[in-house]
Write a protein that binds this DNA or RNA. Structure first.
Lengths: 216, 216, 216, 216
DNA sequence: TATGAATGAGCTTTCATTCAT
DNA sequence: CATGAATGAAAGCTCATTCAT
């Protein structure tokens, strides 16, 4: 139940940064598991093994804490995106890499999906207050635009593709499958999370995306 | 705030069916707006203009009520799907029609998206208890399989397309855009819900799907 | 869970007497198991397999129903007492018979103990309203007085024994053991309800009572 | 209605021990007056003059609170029993003293009787969970065994008396009279709680017990 | 005689938050 | 920097009882 602290220095008493980080991690897990409404401040304190009062000391309220978690989650995925270096790759390979990355990131960070779901249930109210996230504009869109343009000039890609639309499609095909796998499993009566099923899904998504961007 | 009762007979007192239907509608709206955890039974009673106790009289608990709402939502979309009659259409037209239908249904029934999100946050626990939903298996998959096979025999469609994968992709591209439009709008800094943006999205999804299924 | 109706005529519809009797039995069991406060009118209706409204139709309220149950319980034990015919027996035999009877009645009618406990928790408030019970004065006291006097005249019994005190002592030694067997078992760490333990208890009570009334 | 706090220090704010003790006392009175089912947490809070939430802060639930009250009640009577020093007295005097003590303790602590009644109505379920009470085994039984043996060796007491049986008889004769005085008063039509009646009862119990243990 | 529908009051419990040190 | 004590508001749910037929 409690948070993995192996990356943190020993619990020296009175270490403000460490306390904040521990709380943030615990809160991320709690919000991811139960949503904003279902999350319990008590449980976050327990997970983080800190006094509940300390949470309010560092983060004014449950909502502010949720926003902090959200900002951290965005910062994390942005960092990962930046590390992709798609510009160095051939257009088709780059699109494939982006698709694979998106799928794998969602798979390895299910908390990201749940956090976004919670935020959308609340109509993006927290994000709207966050200058940080607005400035953290995804670098991927520009990169993707550049790749699409490169492919078009090469003659391998079709023209007129909106990078935002494409990005949303890649994300959507991965997101929906992973975020809704419980209801989908119930409805289709088959386990969507076996290794084989996961592999087939990624393969399908790549096929769809590539047959769309590739000329002919 | 209160539920639209125009389709219901006048509020005659002591009409069990009407009371249940009114509660169900009010609950659907409340759960859609606030999620399972954030929904308030008091507010449902207010919306439905019934005594709170009556909710427990007909639906044992908040969770059972949520399940009833979920079952109703699935029943509703299944009815709409059945009314499509895709079997009578040419393969490409049928796939386009299904894509349009999915987009439009999600657009007109935002509560369906939110309900599914809530249920998935709870790992499908309610649905798992519902025999009704399991039996209500989507007829679309069989229909889609038939269409894909028809297209392949005609020579217009590629072979080897899994209808479940395709259906999930169609749904996912629509779902993600509409369900996450608040965070996406914040991140991309553009309003995704203008009529023009909506039209462009649907057009894009159709392009992606059709360029995938069509040969060449 | 439901009441034994084997002594009742077939459930002819609309049989007022039968309905009342069934309710009374169901209520007795429910009150005995859960006490007045813990008893549930819903559960009584279920046990009796009648509509809850019917309970209010025949017995105005939960409290009135409790009183009716109490009156019935007293009537039942009085009947059993009357059937003892102690007057025909030798004094010592009569006292022993009364003691055995009391023990056995309590053992076979644990609901009687619980009902009395409930009524005493409520300071006898229901009984105070009941003319019936007041008139149903125990015939045992007079009988016991007669036996004690007979024994004294014979020379076998000591004199000056108050029949009420003696009766309360006989009842108390049986009642306390049976009514409090759960806490006593926990405290003494031994099962007080094995057949052997029961036999030993009755034997002990007889010894105590007889060594008190007998001269020498 | 509120609890006697004369033994507690002034209501300094933020005194955890005091708060718990006050709650415990208030709960004892409430449970004694109304039983477990009839007791109201709101009323306990009022009696104790603390925030209702505080009750749940210190005692997890109503049931746990009841158990705490029960444990305290047992601890209290065990303390009183230990203070008796029966071992220093002559056998007959010791038995008489124990009988008087039992009577007087029950008379002065009517809440003890009611608490036990409630616990037995619930089939000893709380006590069963309490390691504390099980370990608090009555020292009286050992003491009583020693007294009985001493009397037997002296020649004044009969042999073969089970100390548990004797203790239960002493307790039962007192308990039943005091616990059931309301129904007994109604049935016998005489007030059992006048000073004279009380004195007569104690005298009777002593007679019964002593004529049992004494030889001849 | 009998019943399904409905309710107001109040129950135990929960929760985010603040106080005082 | 950190914390145990305390709280007001409200949550989900229950219960005896009444309504209307």
């Amino acid at each position: 139940m409690s948070v993995d602290l192996s990356n943190f220095p020993e619990p020296r008493v009175r270490d403000a940064d460490r306390s904040q980080a521990v709380i943030l991690l615990a809160a991320r897990d709690e919000f991811a598991q139960h949503g904003l409404g279902g999350a319990r401040v008590d449980r976050i304190a327990q997970r983080a093994d800190v006094n509940k009062r300390l949470i309010y000391y560092y983060f004014n309220s449950k909502d502010d804490l949720f926003l902090a978690v959200l900002e951290q989650a965005y910062a994390h995925i942005r960092d990962a995106e930046r590390a992709l270096h798609l510009t160095d790759m051939a257009p088709a390979a780059a699109v494939r890499r982006l698709t694979e990355f998106t799928w794998e990131y969602y798979l390895e960070h299910p908390e990201f999906l749940t956090l976004l779901n919670s935020e959308n249930l609340h109509r993006g109210g927290h994000l709207a207050r966050s200058a940080r996230v607005r400035d953290m504009n995804s670098p991927l869109i520009d990169t993707l635009a550049e790749i699409l343009e490169r492919g078009r000039r090469e003659g391998s890609f079709r023209g007129g593709v909106d990078p935002v639309q494409l990005y949303v499609s890649i994300a959507g095909m991965a997101y929906f499958y992973l975020s809704n796998c419980h209801t989908l499993s119930a409805v289709f009566g088959r386990d969507l999370m076996t290794p084989k099923a996961q592999q087939e899904r990624l393969s399908h998504i790549c096929d769809v995306i590539l047959s769309y961007v590739l000329r002919e």
